[in-house]
Design a protein around this nucleic acid. Structure first.
Length: 382
RNA sequence: UGGGGCGUGGUGCAACGGCAGCACACCGGACUUUGAAUUCGUUGAUCCUGGUUCGAAUCCAGGCGCCCCGG
């Protein structure tokens, strides 16, 4: 069994709040911390749900809440439920709706981690006397006294979640513990069995919790009906192939759902908000070589000023690709990739790594290079 | 109202007279704490009526529909 890295330089017996969800990872995290002798308590968010659909919210159904409470009781730790409905709606759901309304593809999980879990919830945990807060994220930290806390990828490359934590700052990381990040998912499941946690066999969570079991287009339809604005689907040559139902329902690189029969698969190359046009093309037209990002977060708290080579991830489930990162100003940076990269999508995060260490995170504002030629959208169909 | 061409799943195309196949789309599953991607799989068709033939998407006749030329 690998050494539990997360205990590095943690005071023995420290008081640790565990953000619980009722799932395997956070439950095992809590059990591990209890086993390590920390003074543990459980804490869980009550998040916003669509009125009338509360039972379908995957993050915090009454069932999940009851399960987490039961696990806490089994571990013999206190458990607190924290209401975060309003702040979650204001920060996350609104961000989600605004992003799609503006024509980008937002990642609400990033915002939730930054503003809900690691701000709102962390503050509650500290108020409740905690020294640290733990979550079930597959990520790792390194604490060396006198140095910034480092954020590392989880050991399990298939489960690594450091990408969604790249927006955390030092004030947050100082208090962060990721007990499961030093283990693989199978190891965690095995431990959950060993601890006899009822969550051991529960399927991993997925999809956006607040969508209430529906798909996001129908959620947009209910909460941002103005996004249902049909317009032309055209090729880079300007030929119209069909009609889209609203740019918000598509994202860069998307293949399914275009409804266009063609001799080969077509993918979304670009969304042109000004002309309400969806630009599509073949697989070999995908791929761009550079991006610029905003909302820069230097994890160490110490921004670089010179360009540097790094491995960069442009969406949650993507490989690391090499590129040159160039800081532009306090808020912005650019990345020039060594090779063209598919599906660089405004609204998603670009996260730069040195080895397994997260250096820098930002929100992609635009992709550049090998961009489809600008053209005038022309209606050619009858 | 002369000539020529074409009618096959939702779309675009294949099939020497011999089990109607492919691509795209659609639908479903897997994967995934975002949207996607990827992957596995299921549906689904010979314009109509006759004729020739052991056997017709294929050959013949007629009908219906569409396209091009008739500068």
């Amino acid at each position: 069994m690998p050494a539990p890295n997360y205990t590095q330089h943690l005071p023995p017996g420290a008081k640790v709040a565990v953000a619980m969800s009722g799932g395997v990872d956070s439950s095992t995290a809590a059990a591990l911390l209890v086993e390590q002798g920390y003074d543990v308590f459980g804490i869980m968010l009550r998040l916003w749900s669509e009125p009338g659909r509360e039972h379908a919210n995957r993050c915090c159904t009454p069932d999940a809440m009851a399960l987490a409470k039961r696990i806490a009781a089994q571990l013999d730790i206190p458990f607190y439920a924290i209401d975060a409905k309003d702040v979650f709606h204001d920060k996350v759901v609104q961000y989600f709706l605004d992003g799609y309304t503006q024509g980008v593809t937002p990642n609400p999980c990033l915002v939730c981690n930054r503003h809900i879990r690691w701000e709102f919830l962390l503050n509650r945990a500290l108020t409740l006397g905690a020294d640290y807060m733990a979550t079930g994220h597959y990520a790792q930290t390194i604490r060396i006294p006198g140095e910034p806390v480092k954020l590392l990828q989880g050991i399990d490359p298939k489960k690594d979640q450091s990408y969604v934590l790249g927006a955390l700052d030092q004030a947050q990381l100082q208090h962060a513990i990721f007990p499961v990040g030093g283990y693989t998912k199978p190891e965690i499941r095995t431990m959950a069995e060993k601890f006899q946690l009822p969550a051991a066999r529960i399927k991993d969570s997925q999809d956006l919790c607040f969508l209430a079991g529906t798909d996001y287009p129908s959620f947009l339809g209910r909460h941002a009906p103005q996004t249902a604005d049909p317009g032309p689907i055209v090729t880079t040559g300007g030929e119209q192939l069909g009609e889209h139902q609203g740019l918000a329902f598509y994202t860069i690189g998307q293949r399914k759902g275009l409804g266009i029969a063609h001799s080969e698969p077509l993918y979304v190359l670009a969304k042109q908000a000004d002309s309400n046009t969806l630009v599509v093309g073949t697989a070999d037209e995908l791929g761009q070589s550079a991006l610029t990002a905003g909302n820069a977060n230097w994890v160490s708290g110490r921004p670089e000023s010179a360009p540097f080579q790094a491995m960069v991830k442009i969406r949650y489930t993507a490989g690391l690709v090499p590129g040159l990162v160039t800081p532009l100003d306090d808020e912005h940076f650019a990345v020039q990739f060594d090779q063209p990269v598919r599906d660089i999508t405004p609204g998603q995060a670009a996260v730069a790594y040195h080895g397994s260490e997260v250096i820098l995170s930002g929100i992609i504002q635009k992709a550049q290079g090998k961009q489809p030629q600008p053209y005038q959208a022309i209606r050619l169909v009858k």
